[in-house]
Design a binder for these strands. Structure first.
Lengths: 227, 227
DNA sequence: CGTACCATTGAGTTTTTTCAACTCGCGTGG
DNA sequence: CCACGCGAGTTGAAAAAACTCAATGGTACG
């Protein structure tokens, strides 16, 4: 069940300073005085950039996108969130991103104050919060590296591989986001993303069954691109 | 005194979920069974990418650069560290970066196991560790945004402003790193960085007294570039 | 004073963006 | 049922941005 992914991390990101894997956060959400929120419809906002952090979430189903809007209207997609992911933990007192449901989304909610209160007495929970943040940091640095140093082909390939990995390496990946979302995530225009996908398909690495369903035909070649 | 910067953060990055500013980490380093390490000479490595995390540091003086080497020889500078900064806290069991002294560097060292042990019983310390990581995460996301969406001029301007800010906004900023270091940080080539600086100078926003000493003449115009 | 490293600058090339046109799929309303 | 419109996606051609290659200039240090 992918909802438990962060309790059994398959990423090679080890916990910080100590090595205790930890599911305290999952437990906190499970036992929280939090109702499973009524599901979010596609396009619904879980929270907005600048909002005070009241609730934090754990995604149960569906997909979510987080982004920041720039003053000149450009948009930076900071990440996509899948079942098992936590939302809002790495925020300050204000949310740094707007977070929007891409599909129908079920999530567990928890009061930030309740979580903070528990962490103040529960060292295991405090450590878990830290670990989630460390993972988010690592993910962000990996992403920065791609943005700083890779061309369009590498960026798109890396995105596809990463997303497939997080989906559990299915035969065909079902992309819940638009090309624009991808472009705003990997720092390209929608045109370049589209062209690049067409090129990957022409080279036989990928098959686009429809624009939202992509089959990865030659994972090793894609991985080679991300050197 | 800049060495206490992280105890009195001037960044607008608030602590996570709760608002307690916290200097538990400073205290931990101050009272650690850690010798102030003999200073590092310029070019000396504090640790290497892939090393097990044995010691974590707090910089007292000098400047430090952290970077990751890619398989194809390219290099991504993840950040520069100044007095007051902590090094190695956001790492997993292995360091994700190589960290190198740019100048003569004095630092306090602490055993990772000692810090982890204290954090296991000291909730305040655990929270401080989390907050430092949250800040690193925010910094990384801000950086990713620049890399994803900004042109050369904006990148260089943002770098100069950020560095000046961290130095305490001196009249003239003294860059401890080479052009190559800057280029590898902002995701450009050394040539583009150099050209861009020349342009900023031609436009009167900056004065290069020498290649390592830059005076910011029109901060507002530079800030305008980073819109 | 020469060597080595860092930095700057110019010229040509590559990559990506921009601008524009066109296609596809899908739902709505005539 | 079909025409229409709309948003999403694709593709081509021209323009802009950044990179590569190459040469030159500057500075520190032996």
């Amino acid at each position: 069940m992918t909802a438990l992914r962060y309790c059994e991390p398959r990423e090679a990101v080890a916990p910080s300073l100590d090595t205790t894997p930890d599911c305290a956060l999952c437990g906190a959400f499970a036992s929280a005085t939090a109702a499973p929120r009524s599901p979010f419809a596609p396009g619904a906002l879980l929270f907005r950039q600048g909002d005070a952090v009241r609730l934090v979430y754990r995604v149960l189903s569906g997909a979510v996108v987080s982004y920041r809007l720039l003053s000149d209207g450009r948009r930076q997609v900071t990440g996509f969130h899948l079942p098992g992911d936590f939302l809002g933990l790495e925020a300050g007192v204000e949310h740094a991103t707007t977070t929007e449901a891409l599909s129908r989304v079920d999530a567990l909610a928890m009061e930030r104050t309740e979580l903070a209160g528990r962490a103040a007495t529960d060292v295991g929970l405090a450590r878990a919060l830290w670990q989630v943040t460390v993972r988010a940091f690592r993910r962000s640095e990996d992403h920065a590296l791609i943005l700083a140093r890779q061309g369009a082909t590498e960026r798109v390939a890396a995105f596809l591989l990463d997303f497939a990995e997080r989906m559990g390496r299915p035969e065909i990946i079902d992309l819940p986001m638009t090309r624009q979302d991808i472009a705003d995530h990997v720092g390209l225009t929608i045109h370049t993303v589209s062209r690049t996908l067409s090129q990957l398909q022409a080279q036989g690495m990928v098959e686009a069954r429809s624009s939202r369903h992509v089959r990865l035909l030659q994972r090793h070649r894609l991985e080679g691109l991300c050197a």
